[in-house]
Design a protein around this nucleic acid. Structure first.
Lengths: 100, 100
DNA sequence: CGTGTAAGGAATTCTGACACG
DNA sequence: CGTGTAAGGAATTCTGACACG
């Protein structure tokens, strides 16, 4: 796992990096669009990938998309990816079995 | 500038990442071994490179090296790098002048 | 639905100092 | 010299709620 995925940034910095208010950032979490980690004390911690994702979310919100639509769109992408990966694995297995 | 160089991590997280006490981390700054940024409020912000550097410092401290030695050693490395870069630039210029 | 804001409290960080060795 | 700690204050973050639309 690279530095991009390490959850180490507090919400104030994320707010500066993205230009989004802390209120918005917390709200997008409430709407299951983002999943920060927490310190023992309860402070949120984000990764650079989260920051990139928030910027992406912000763009879609500007385009008039609603949070549930963004979430659904994301789930579709994940589904597509899963199917693609499953097929790829199937082909790899087939290729190996042929050799046996 | 990559994510590694972005100063976005607060001292508590850096402490967890490096295993060093906050006291030590602040002390190494006082000794000019590390240079965090600050928020408007005065809270320190570190980069992943700073974290790597702190781990390096910790190792040298364990080896019994003193802070001023670590600083001096670092300055020597920088000096070497400067000379190397200067020579490289000189050769590049020479190569271009030949073509003219 | 998405977001601003005031409210009160808790977690985090800051500095300067004293201590020990 | 390097580091722990108690002290007091300031900056940061948290949650739940009310407001508007």
């Amino acid at each position: 796992m690279s530095y991009k995925d390490k959850k180490v940034i507090t919400i104030g910095i994320v707010s500066e990096l993205t230009g989004l208010s802390e209120r918005k950032i917390r709200y997008y979490e409430e709407r299951k669009l983002i999943y920060p980690d927490r310190t023992k004390g309860g402070t949120r911690k984000y990764s650079f990938i989260d920051v990139e994702r928030l910027i992406d979310i912000a763009n879609k919100m500007e385009d008039g998309m609603q949070t549930f639509e963004i979430r659904r769109q994301e789930q579709k992408m994940m589904k597509k990816k899963e199917v693609r990966d499953k097929m790829l694995r199937g082909q790899l297995n087939a290729a190996f079995n042929i050799r046996k």
